[in-house]
């Protein structure tokens, strides 16, 4: 079953064709990698899926429903969560509150309930706090709960972003270079975490430059170059694909 379906997706920035007629499917329950050289348009594809950009052309269908024209927060509410390539945590807030941000879209209480705090509002807050702590435990950051996000190590900040995304109770999580800036040990831990995310029934779509991570974790890989899709398939297929090798290593000049 297809969870996310991209069809003829196109995005131009002035004269630059950032994403050119890209189509691919993300099967439910899978881990899909999106790779390509720098500037290939990978992050632009993510920004199109999450509603940060509007596509000039093409369709994005999530769970049978077109989401191309929805605002970001609605897309999140439907079950698509993301992390960012350049870490975008709420730096001056605690790790716990960063994760509570993810719980937001599954809560209801507004400003009036906040001022008068009826029992149902308190219960909702209690549930959100439990949930946030559980997600912190999931990425093994529970002992950092009351630390400010800016005081966490780089690798932990990346994990905190994952926890925040998971707190939205997504069905699809989109990770933009989750291993960026991580050492080998942290990357190994991240692969574990990604597999556990999958085991929770959440589909994973990720961009990554660390090929060992991509080849180990992903069941399906989509390769972009200059905004266009040049290959799609399993890790072995992709590693043997001459066009992919050419895109990454260049051709030999005679």
């Amino acid at each position: 079953m297809t969870l996310l379906h991209l069809e003829h997706l196109t995005k131009r920035f002035g004269g630059l064709m950032a994403v050119n007629n890209v189509s691919f499917d993300v099967p439910a329950g899978s881990i899909v990698g999106l790779i390509g050289p720098n500037g290939a348009g990978k992050t632009t594809v993510f920004n199109l899926i999450t509603g940060n950009y509007r596509a000039d052309n093409g369709q994005i269908v999530f769970d049978g429903r077109p989401i191309g024209s929805l605002p970001t927060h609605r897309i999140v509410a439907l079950g698509v969560a993301r992390t960012f390539q350049t870490i975008r945590l709420f730096q001056k807030l605690t790790a716990l509150e960063n994760v509570l941000a993810g719980c937001h879209c599954r809560m209801k209480s507004g400003s009036i309930a906040a001022m008068f705090q009826p029992p149902w509002q308190r219960a909702e807050e209690a549930r959100a706090l439990d949930k946030a702590l559980a997600e912190l435990r999931f990425v093994k950051l529970e002992n950092q709960a009351m630390n400010l996000a800016e005081n966490l190590s780089y690798g932990n900040q990346r994990l905190l972003e994952v926890a925040r995304a998971l707190a939205t109770e997504p069905r699809l999580i989109i990770l933009d270079e989750p291993a960026g800036g991580m050492n080998d040990q942290e990357t190994a831990r991240l692969i574990d975490t990604i597999r556990q995310i999958q085991a929770r029934g959440v589909t994973v779509l990720l961009i990554e430059h660390d090929m060992s991570l991509v080849m180990k974790a992903c069941e399906k890989i989509v390769v972009l170059e200059n905004g266009a899709k040049i290959a799609e398939g399993g890790p072995r297929e992709i590693q043997a694909n001459p066009r992919v090798i050419e895109a990454y290593l260049g051709t030999e000049e005679e």
Partner: peptide
């Protein structure tokens, strides 16, 4: 000290990340 108060702080800190976390 509520969902509402936190939401405002998220927006102040980074409104792109706030929207990406599901906040209108």
């Amino acid at each position: 000290h509520s969902r509402f108060g936190r939401a405002l702080n998220y927006i102040r800190e980074d409104d792109v990340a706030a929207a990406g976390s599901g906040i209108d």
